[in-house]
C-alpha cells in the first residue's frame, strides 16, 4: 500500500499551478484534499506521473457572497469549512446538511468542495448537490477559462469534461428562488458510509402552493447524478398531492435510475429505496417550501 513513484509540484499561485499543469499535460494530476486520490495511489489503482498540489495556493480557499444572493466557493475550500460557514447555512441551509453526511470529520477537514466535484464519484454528495442547486463551475487553464453548468459537467463515473491541463477553480451557487424548499434523504450502511441510494430534492412553490419548479437529483444509483425529468413533468404547475408524489416516486424508481447489485445491496433493494426516498424527500421539501 505504497504509491508508485511520482513527481511532486507545490505551486503557490493559480498561474503557477496552471503553467505546471500545461507543461505536464496527461502526466499531471491535481492534488486537492487527497482523500480520494491518495488512497487510490496507495492501492496503485491511480499512478499519476506527477502531482500538482493545490494546498499552498491560498487564493483557492474562500467562500464569498455574490451580489445576487448566491455564493462563490473556491475549489480548495474544505468540506468542514462549508459545513460550518454561517453564510452558507443562511443562504443554502441544505448544503451543510448534505455535507455533514460525507464520511467523517477527519475526512471533511481535508476533503475539498471542488475536489469532490472534479472526482465525480457517482456515490458522492457534492456533485449531486451542485446539479440540484444549478451550480456553475469556473474551469481555468493557462491563458483561458470557461464556465460549465453542473448539469453538463459529469460524463460518467469518475469522468468529467475537464481536460488534463484544466483545473476547476470556483463553484458558483445561484440564489435559491423565493418559495423554495429542499430535502436530503439517503440510506447508507453506516453513519459516514457511502450512500446506497440518495436523493436531493429542491422545490419551488407559488403563493397557491402550486409547484413552480422541482429538481430531484438522485445519486449512487447510476453513473452520474441523475436529474429527474419525470418529477418536473408530473408536478410543475400542480399542487403536489401525496398521490402525485407517490406517482413520481414510483416512476423514477422504475424508469430513471439504474442501480446495480453489489455486496451491500441488490439492485431490487436499491430501486425500492429510491421509491421510498423520493417520496419522503419530496414530501419534506414541499412541507418546507410552505
Amino acid at each position: 500500500m505504497k504509491p508508485a513513484p511520482f513527481e511532486y509540484y507545490a505551486p503557490t499561485s493559480v498561474e503557477e499551478a496552471l503553467a505546471t499543469l500545461q507543461s505536464l499535460g496527461y502526466d499531471g494530476k491535481v492534488l486537492a484534499g487527497g482523500q480520494s486520490l491518495i488512497p487510490a495511489m496507495n492501492f496503485r489503482m491511480a499512478r499519476p506521473a506527477a502531482l500538482v498540489d493545490l494546498n499552498k495556493v491560498k487564493e483557492l480557499f474562500y467562500i464569498k457572497p455574490t451580489s445576487d444572493g448566491g455564493l462563490a466557493i473556491g475549489t480548495m475550500t474544505r468540506d468542514s469549512v462549508v459545513e460550518k460557514d454561517p453564510l452558507v447555512s443562511e443562504r443554502f441551509p441544505i448544503v451543510p446538511y448534505v455535507v455533514k453526511h460525507i464520511a467523517h470529520p477527519q475526512i471533511r477537514n481535508r476533503g475539498t468542495f471542488g475536489g469532490a466535484i472534479a472526482h465525480a464519484d457517482p456515490a458522492a454528495q457534492i456533485p449531486a448537490l451542485s446539479v440540484a442547486l444549478q451550480a456553475r463551475f469556473l474551469v481555468r487553464k493557462q491563458g483561458g477559462e470557461r464556465w460549465v453548468n453542473a448539469e453538463d459537467f459529469f460524463m460518467g463515473p469518475f469522468m468529467t469534461v475537464l481536460e488534463p491541463e484544466e483545473m476547476l477553480a470556483e463553484v458558483v451557487l445561484p440564489p435559491m428562488a423565493k418559495g423554495s424548499g429542499a430535502s436530503y434523504q439517503q440510506v447508507s450502511r453506516q453513519k459516514g458510509g457511502y450512500a446506497q441510494a440518495a436523493v436531493i430534492s429542491v422545490v419551488v412553490v407559488d403563493e397557491n402552493k402550486r409547484c413552480k419548479d422541482v429538481r430531484v437529483v438522485l445519486f449512487s444509483v447510476g453513473e452520474t447524478p441523475i436529474l429527474s425529468q419525470t418529477a418536473r413533468k408530473i408536478l410543475v404547475g400542480n399542487v403536489p398531492t401525496a398521490e402525485a408524489i407517490a406517482e413520481v416516486a414510483e416512476k423514477i424508481s422504475k424508469d430513471e435510475v439504474d442501480p446495480g447489485t453489489d455486496i451491500h445491496g441488490t439492485a431490487e433493494y436499491r430501486r425500492h429505496l429510491v421509491k421510498v426516498l423520493v417520496r419522503r424527500g419530496l414530501t419534506e421539501a414541499f412541507e418546507r417550501a410552505k
Binding site: Q196, G265, T266, E268, Y269
Partner: peptide, 11 residues
Amino acid sequence: LSPSRIFTYVQ
C-alpha cells in the same frame, strides 16, 4: 443481516 438481505427475505 444487511438491510438488503432483510428486504430480500421479507419479499
